[in-house]
């Protein structure tokens, strides 16, 4: 039951509008590019210094001087540009990037997000995530509803070190689409075949359910 990672990406792709510059985080967010309709004019930014990021190169055409923020080999589409890191974060902090899609370990009902550190266990660093969440107007979190231990990742208060505060507006999980406002998760859509009751049980934070909740359309 619930969506797989590609289906989560497919649902999020519907949020990408024509004319958007979009920053995609590592993991599920990277998959979103595969599902944006051809008639949508969009440019993907990778914070290591490219606008107009294209798909992976054909075998044998990979270039060590052309990678994305996940250090994967990529291509540049017609109209692409390269720039230095400070310019890249001017685009982000200056709110020139329209949409940021990133993963998370925890999200709280006031819009806080934690995704960079598990004290004593995992210390990889925040990369560009703190700059992105502090500045973007439009942030969508893509993640599984619960962690590997089956515990909710949608909480009243985050328990892990924060990446940013009061910043997440929308969350798309394998179970549901939710909006965050007025210190609560508002259920907008549910995954096909998943009941409201099931989503409620998987959500530790306050979940507001108003009226009939439609199933996601793809």
């Amino acid at each position: 039951m619930g969506l797989d990672k590609n289906q989560i990406a497919q649902r999020i792709a519907k949020e990408v509008k024509s004319g958007y510059y979009v920053n995609l985080g590592i993991g599920i967010p990277t998959l979103v590019a595969n599902f944006v309709r051809d008639d949508i004019e969009v440019e993907f930014q990778s914070e290591n210094g490219i606008l107009g990021m294209g798909p992976f190169p054909f075998e044998g055409e990979e270039d060590p001087d052309l990678i994305n923020a996940g250090k994967q080999t990529i291509t540049a589409l017609p109209g692409a540009s390269f720039f230095d890191s400070a310019t890249s974060f001017s685009m982000i902090r200056g709110q020139h990037v329209d949409l940021t899609i990133l993963g998370a370990m925890e999200v709280s009902q006031n819009g806080d997000i934690a995704n960079w550190k598990i004290p004593g266990k995992m210390v990889k660093g925040m990369g560009g995530a703190m700059d992105l969440v502090a500045s973007a107007e439009n942030i969508i979190v893509a993640m599984m509803h619960t962690n590997r231990a089956g515990e909710s990742k949608l909480l009243k208060t985050c328990s892990l070190p924060l990446t940013g505060v009061h910043c997440v507006k929308k969350v798309v999980t394998d179970l549901a689409v939710m909006e965050i406002r007025d210190n609560a998760f508002h259920l907008l859509e549910r995954a096909p075949g998943v009941s409201v009751e099931f989503i409620k049980n998987a959500t530790e934070g306050d979940l507001i359910v108003a009226g009939d909740i439609p199933e996601m359309q793809f």
Binding site: P55, F58, E59, E62, P64, G70, Q72, T73
Partner: peptide
């Protein structure tokens, strides 16, 4: 040497 960290390619 210009090592590639994550080689990702697609098939033709």
């Amino acid at each position: 040497e210009k090592r590639i960290e994550q080689l990702t390619v697609r098939k033709r």
